Deep mutational scan, measured.
Amino acid sequence: MSYSVTLTGPGPWGFRLQGGKDFNMPLTISRITPGSKAAQSQLSQGDLVVAIDGVNTDTMTHLEAQNKIKSASYNLSLTLQKS
């Protein structure tokens, strides 16, 4: 079951990613910084990142996902799936 979260910026957003197409692993939330915008939302460590700002992550490399997140200036919309 997927869910959506919109973090209001600017960054830093307070989470780290792992995985990506180049690692043959789905993009997942690997760490959440305590007290951060991510920590105050529904994000959980281990959640799968399905889309970033409406763009499906199935074919994204780790770097492409990082760049997509960094390019979000004020709002960052994520679609996630609980692990």
Rank of each mutant, 00 (worst) to 15 (best):
T59W: 08
A39P: 02
S2N: 15
G20E: 02
S73L: 12
V50H: 07
V5K: 02
K37V: 11
P12W: 03
S4D: 07
N67I: 09
T61P: 04
Q45P: 12
G11N: 05
G19N: 03
Q18G: 12
S44A: 12
L78S: 01
I69T: 05
K21I: 10
A51M: 12
I69M: 08
R31V: 09
L17Q: 02
K37H: 10
N75W: 09
N56Q: 11
V50L: 14
S4R: 10
I29D: 00
K70A: 14
I29Q: 01
T57P: 03
Y74S: 15
K21R: 10
D58K: 10
L63A: 15
V55A: 13
G14W: 00
D47Y: 02
W13E: 02
N24D: 09
P26F: 01
L48I: 14
F23N: 08
W13Y: 15
P10M: 10
Q42G: 14
P10E: 13
L27A: 04
G9M: 04
L80K: 01
K70D: 12
L48K: 13
V50R: 08
D53I: 01
T59C: 11
S73E: 15
V50I: 13
I69G: 01
I69P: 00
M25W: 06
P26R: 04
Q45T: 13
K70R: 14
I29C: 05
L7G: 00
S2A: 09
T59S: 11
R16H: 14
Y74K: 15
Q66N: 13
N24R: 10
L80E: 00
G9K: 05
V55S: 10
P10A: 11
T6I: 11
A72M: 10
A38C: 05
G9P: 06
G9W: 04
L17V: 12
A65Y: 02
I29F: 03
H62S: 11
S36F: 03
I29W: 00
T59M: 11
P26D: 04
N67T: 10
T79L: 12
K70Y: 10
W13M: 06
Q18H: 08
Y74V: 15
Q42C: 09
S71E: 14
P34Q: 10
K37M: 08
Q45S: 11
S77Q: 15
F23W: 10
V49I: 12
S4Q: 12
S73F: 09
T79C: 12
T8E: 15
S44Q: 10
M60F: 10
N75C: 10
F23A: 11
G46C: 04
S83G: 08
S44V: 10
A65R: 01
N56Y: 10
I52H: 00
Q40A: 12
H62W: 10
G9F: 05
I29S: 00
L63K: 14
S77F: 11
L27V: 11
S41I: 05
S2R: 09
Q66E: 12
K68I: 08
M1H: 04
D47A: 05
A72W: 05
S83V: 12
Q42I: 07
M1T: 10
Y3K: 04
N67M: 08
V50D: 05
K82V: 15
Q42M: 08
M60I: 05
F15H: 02
L80V: 11
T59E: 10
A72K: 14
N75S: 13
S41A: 11
F23R: 14
H62D: 05
I69D: 01
G14L: 01
G14K: 01
D47C: 04
L76C: 07
A72V: 15
Q45M: 13
S2T: 15
S71F: 09
T79G: 10
L76Q: 03
R31W: 13
M25N: 09
G9T: 05
R16P: 00
V50N: 06
N24C: 09
P10N: 11
G35S: 08
Q81P: 02
K82G: 14
D47H: 04
T61F: 04
Q40E: 13
H62V: 08
F15K: 01
N67H: 08
F15T: 00
Q40S: 11
N67K: 14
G54M: 04
F23K: 15
T28G: 06
R16Y: 13
G54D: 09
S2H: 14
M60C: 05
T8M: 15
G19I: 00
P26K: 04
K37P: 15
G20P: 01
Q45N: 08
H62P: 04
Q18K: 13
K82H: 08
D53A: 06
T8P: 15
Q66V: 15
T6E: 07
Q18T: 12
N67P: 00
P26A: 06
A72E: 14
L76V: 09
K37N: 07
P26V: 02
S44R: 12
L63N: 11
S73D: 15
G19M: 01
N24L: 09
S36K: 03
D53L: 05
T61M: 05
T33K: 08
P12E: 10
S2M: 15
S2D: 11
Q40D: 12
L78F: 04
L7E: 00
L76K: 03
S77I: 12
T8V: 15
L48G: 06
P10S: 09
K82S: 15
S30K: 14
S4K: 14
S30N: 07
G11D: 06
L43H: 00
L48E: 12
R31Q: 09
M1E: 08
G14T: 00
S41E: 08
N67C: 07
D22I: 04
Y74A: 15
L63D: 12
S44H: 15
Q81A: 13
A65W: 03
A39R: 04
S83C: 15
D22W: 03
T61H: 05
G14H: 02
Q42W: 06
S73N: 11
K37F: 06
I29Y: 01
L76A: 03
G46T: 04
L27F: 10
D58V: 09
S2K: 05
I52M: 05
T59Y: 09
L78I: 08
